[in-house]
Design a protein around this nucleic acid. Structure first.
Lengths: 236, 236
DNA sequence: TTCACAACGTGACCTAAGTCACATACCGCT
DNA sequence: AGCGGTATGTGACTTAGGTCACGTTGTGAA
């Protein structure tokens, strides 16, 4: 793909960057490199040093932590028009990357080298404002995550996750195993809840994907245990 | 206390701010207000809007989330020489404060109004650098927290927390209830582990405080379950 | 001193969710 | 059609840790 087309797509995906001060914009355009990742590629390993400010134009990456026992928990995802904020934080503070990142689908990204990033942070108020704005959002979402993991039961979290991943057609293209890894749990437990909900008519699961049939019911359930599904050995 | 003395103490606690560009420093000094909180006072409520950049000169505040059932989990603490980074993030992004903050001890703080904060962020590279330097640490610590809550068992987390809170004399001035709230658990469970460890000679608990007697043992335990304590009904 | 109250100790019990060990079922190849 | 690999279904079991319901003890104010 020609460079002009890439630049156009990039700036369309990041309209804020098209609004920068002219000199800042020039510097940004001159220094940014485009890059591709294949599905499954590792974008960053735990402990790696970050050298670029990374903007995702297309595809999606998944940032997660792994436990010694091989379980994982997803911290957040980066989709088109989003930046990998954790990378930013590492750039600013000079820390190594404290998690791991992989491509969930083929990814097209724009990468701005560290030196230019730092110069723009100094010279361009708009660039700075954009970067810091993203930063706050990640903080909030991590705090929400802590809250969820500490206090919400797995079934509620699963219900919410299904709704978050479902397209307008209700399809969630993930295996039970992948959902388990996102939530920091194990496959069997996820399968249990899903088959329970399948019996209730809320979802239907196929091989490699789940279809959400009754979003409102699932949402009510995910919001606060309103309608008790009849468990295997439930009373009354 | 006279204003000069306050200013001196403040700048001693935040040496980086004493090194600002002269005009920036003047603006900072002119706009900063000092404030006190008593132990137990609420510094920020969930959802509140932040109007100040807050620097802690003395005392300590505790930032935490509360669940509907009244359990809590501590996100981080702010001590002398530290700033409340979450506040900063809210200032920059204009978000409401996504958690709650209380004073764990009487607090003396310096507060810089939002307008001046934003102006200094633009005009003073040194100030900006200082603010952003603090920024990265909070993200890393939140990610560590997610990791812990998702994967570490409560006994390990408690062991680590005791070591983190213990002074050089090994004293942790918290009640079982407070430790439970920090960790997102309940008092009975904390008491169980503590009395177990007291039987092992690792700690001694008094009313309102715990003394860590054997830091190395507790550290080994907290690091990874090396020496199994003999549980009530444990085999062999 | 006594009384209220906060902190702690403790046993009995319950439940979410992880572990183990399978049995299927489906999908793409040859 | 048959086969290996991946995805799913399911039961039996275990366990960390939360809940309940107490009893005990220290402590500071009246």
């Amino acid at each position: 793909m020609s460079n002009e087309i890439l630049i156009t797509r990039w700036l369309n995906t990041f309209p804020e960057l098209a609004e920068l001060e002219p000199e800042a914009q020039g510097e940004l355009l001159g220094a940014t490199q485009f890059n591709r990742l294949r599905q499954g590629d590792i974008a960053y390993r735990q402990g790696q040093v970050c050298h670029n400010y990374v903007m995702c134009i297309e595809g999606q990456t998944r940032i997660f932590k792994t436990s010694e026992s091989g379980r994982e928990i997803m911290l957040y995802q980066v989709g088109p028009g989003e930046t990998c904020v954790l990378t930013t934080s590492c750039l600013i503070a000079g820390n190594p990357f404290p998690a791991e990142s992989t491509a969930q689908a083929d990814v097209l990204l724009a990468a701005l080298p560290s030196t230019v990033f730092h110069r723009l942070m100094v010279t361009s108020p708009k660039f700075r404002h954009y970067v810091l704005g993203n930063y706050g959002d990640l903080l909030s979402s991590l705090i929400m995550l802590v809250d969820e993991v500490a206090f919400a039961s797995l079934d509620l979290r699963l219900a919410r996750r299904l709704l978050a991943e479902a397209g307008s057609d209700g399809v969630v293209s993930k295996t039970h195993q992948q959902l388990a890894l996102d939530l920091g749990s194990v496959r069997e437990v996820i399968s249990r809840y899903l088959s329970e909900w399948e019996r209730m008519g809320w979802v239907r699961s196929a091989r490699g994907s789940i279809v959400v049939l009754d979003k409102p019911a699932l949402a009510r359930y995910g919001a606060g245990e309103e309608e008790e599904p009849l468990r295997a050995g439930a009373r009354h």
